[in-house]
Amino acid sequence: MTQDDITLLVLAGGQGRRMGGVDKGWSLLLDKPLILHVLSRLEGQTRAVLINANRSLDAYEQLGYPVITDLEGDFKGPLMGILSGLSAASTPWVLVVPCDTPALPQDLVTRMIGGIGDHDIAVAHDGERAHPVIALMRCDLAADLREALAAGERKIDRWYARHHWCHVDFSDQPEAFINLNSPEERMNLGQRLERDGST
């Protein structure tokens, strides 16, 4: 597998309930929307980029990448966004990331490729916990995921467990996986990024 075999899928289709229902992709961090932080961390590292969104579609389309909505409505969670991306991608692999993790490792793509081995799914692990929505997976899992969703499955961990999957160790940079669910977290991360000069 090379970077040319991968489509980056940014999940921006959630309801943002823990942030008061806002569209998290357009929440500002250091005067820049979260979606732009994520895209800039991984820019040019995959053959293609897809953005999964269910609102603010015109704004997302202006970023210059294809925007795909969930195949089924009613905000059915990240698995539906993943299925929509797997179904739309033209590459054999998809790397899924959320739009609210603006400090992602800049070597995320190469390390996920290096860590997946012969598995069908690789999930980032920060040394303390896994991050299920940061995952590299085969696009041909779409049919099985469609069946799981039709049967009522909504738990991402349970769907992964149906397949040959592994963790990829990022314990050397756990702070890269902070996701923002409150104004306080946003302020703290903004201060850290400014201090580190990694904006």
Rank of each mutant, 00 (worst) to 15 (best):
G127F: 08
Q62L: 13
I82K: 04
G81M: 07
L86C: 08
G114E: 15
K32M: 14
G115R: 09
A89L: 08
Y65F: 15
V96P: 01
V96Y: 02
A59R: 15
F170S: 03
I156Y: 02
H163Y: 07
L39E: 00
E153W: 03
T110H: 12
Q62N: 11
K24I: 11
L30S: 14
V49F: 00
G16K: 06
R146H: 13
G20Q: 08
S84D: 04
P78D: 14
V97F: 01
L42D: 01
L83S: 00
A142T: 07
M19N: 11
L8W: 01
C166K: 09
P132F: 14
M80V: 08
G152Y: 13
G44L: 09
D5G: 14
L83M: 01
L71E: 15
L193D: 06
Q15K: 12
A89Y: 11
G44V: 12
R138P: 09
A12K: 06
D100Q: 01
K32L: 14
D196E: 12
V49P: 00
L30T: 11
L29R: 10
I121Y: 05
L11P: 09
A12V: 05
N181M: 05
D169C: 10
P98F: 01
L104I: 08
W93P: 07
L79F: 07
L11A: 09
R17L: 09
F75V: 00
K155V: 12
H125N: 13
R55K: 14
R17S: 10
V94A: 09
M1P: 14
R55S: 15
Q3F: 07
V133P: 03
G190D: 00
G16N: 07
H163L: 05
M112A: 07
G190W: 00
E185P: 00
P132K: 05
G64N: 11
L63C: 06
P102S: 03
L50Y: 01
T199E: 13
M1K: 13
I156K: 02
G44I: 10
D31T: 07
A161C: 06
L63R: 03
L108K: 06
D140C: 03
L63Q: 04
Y60N: 00
L57D: 01
L136P: 11
D172Q: 12
P92S: 13
E128M: 10
G114N: 15
G16W: 04
K76V: 08
G85W: 04
I178S: 04
E184M: 06
Y60W: 02
L180H: 01
N52E: 12
A143D: 13
L71F: 12
C99Q: 04
H131Y: 03
V96A: 05
L95V: 02
Q15P: 10
T46W: 05
H164W: 09
Q62S: 14
I82L: 12
V10P: 08
G114F: 04
T91F: 11
R162C: 03
T46G: 06
E72H: 15
